[in-house]
Computed example of a mutant assay.
Amino acid sequence: MVTSSTELVSADHAEFACICECQSIDRDAVVELHRGFFSDQPSLPSKYFYDQSGSELFDEICELDEYYPTRTEASIMGACVDAMVEAIGPAGRLIEYGSGSSLKTRLLLEHMHADVTYVPVDISGDYLEQVAEKLRLEFPRRRIAPIAADFTRPFQLPSSRARQARDVVYFPGSTIGNFGPAFAASLLSQMRNQVGTGGGLLIGFDLQKDPAVLEAAYDDRRGITALFNLNLLRHLNRVAGGDFDLKGYRHIALYNDRDHRIEMHLESCHEQSVTLAGRTRTLSKSERILTELSHKYTIDGFTEMAAASGWQREQIWTDTNEYFAVGMFRS
C-alpha cells in the first residue's frame, strides 16, 4: 500500500527521531524520501547516487566513449579557459556546487590568481576530503576549503582572503539539468542570493541533440551507468533503512522528447515489497522508480531561465558540434 503524502508529512516526531537515530539521514531527508518513494510515481532523489562508491562509478562513466558531456565540456574549457578566467575576474571565492573529483576545476585553478579561495561543495564528505587533500598538494598556494553539504539547501561559506573581489559559483557538468524547471530556477536564485549583486556564475549545460546519442550516453555498453543507478539503492539501504534487493531491478534510460530530457529509472523485475525509512510499499512487476532527470536545453531557453532567476548572460562557449555549452552570467 502507498501511504498518502498527507499522512507522511504529519508522521509523529517520535517516529522520525527513531529513524534518524538509527540511520544517518535527518528528518527533512526522511520527509523527502517518503514524498518521493511513496507517491503514485515512485521516485528517489538523485543526490543519493553520490556516496564513495557512487562518486567513483561516476568518474568511470566520465571516461566512457558514449558519455560525451565530460570530455566535450573539458574540450571547451581547454580551448577557452583564458577567456573564462578573464570573464570571472578577480574572484574572492570560487564555489563549486557538486564538485565530485574537481577535474575541470583544476584548469581554472591553474589560471586564476593566487588569492582565490576554492570552495568545493559535495554531499559525499569522505570522497570530498580525499579530493581536497590531492588539490592541496597540487596547488599549495591555493586555499582549499571543502564543505560537505547538500548544495540544494543553503550552506555557510568560509571567509575569503581576497579584498574587493566578487564570489563566483562554478556549476559544471550540466548538473542543473538534473532538476525540474521550477527547482532549477529556485537553485539559480539561491546561487544569485549567495554571491550577491555583481557576483558571477560559470555553468555548464547540455544541449538538445539526436536522442540516439543521448540514450547511448546514459545506457553504455559496459553497464557502468547501470551499476551507478543500482548503487543508489545500496546507498539508501545503508543510510535510510532500505531493504532493496539490487538483483530485483534493471536499469532503464530513455529520452522524453516532449520535455527534452533523459529519464533514468529502475524497473522492478517482479512484484516485491520494499521498506525505506520506516515505511513499506509494494512494487508491481515492471513498475519503475524514477532516479534521475537530465534536461537538455537550447542556449536561448537556458538564458531565459537564468534571467528569470536574476542572472544576465555575458558570454557562451560551445563545441563545434554544439553538443554542450558553458555560460558566464552576472547577477
Rank of each mutant, 00 (worst) to 15 (best):
D259H: 13
L276D: 07
L214C: 06
L283H: 02
T225K: 02
G242V: 10
Y218E: 03
L214H: 07
D219I: 05
L230I: 11
R258W: 12
V213H: 08
R238E: 14
D243W: 04
R222S: 13
R250L: 00
D259P: 06
D245E: 13
G248Y: 03
E271F: 01
A212R: 14
G223L: 08
V239R: 11
A217E: 08
S273F: 03
T282G: 10
A240T: 00
L207D: 06
H235C: 06
Q208T: 15
D257M: 12
I262N: 10
L232Q: 09
G248M: 00
Q272C: 06
D210Q: 09
D219A: 14
D219T: 01
E215P: 06
H270N: 14
D210S: 07
A226I: 01
E271L: 07
I262E: 00
V239P: 04
N229Q: 10
E263N: 03
L283M: 09
I252H: 00
V274K: 04
D257K: 15
N256S: 08
D243R: 04
R258D: 15
V274Q: 03
D259N: 15
F244M: 04
T280V: 10
C269D: 12
A216M: 10
A277Y: 03
Y249H: 12
L230S: 11
A226K: 01
R261G: 07
D259I: 01
H251N: 00
I262V: 12
R279A: 13
R250W: 04
E215N: 08
I224K: 12
R222E: 13
A277I: 02
L266I: 01
L214V: 14
D210M: 02
F244T: 03
L227M: 13
A216T: 06
R222F: 09
D210A: 08
G248L: 02
T225I: 02
F244K: 03
L236Q: 09
L214R: 07
K209T: 01
H251M: 00
L207F: 07
A216L: 09
H270T: 13
H235I: 06
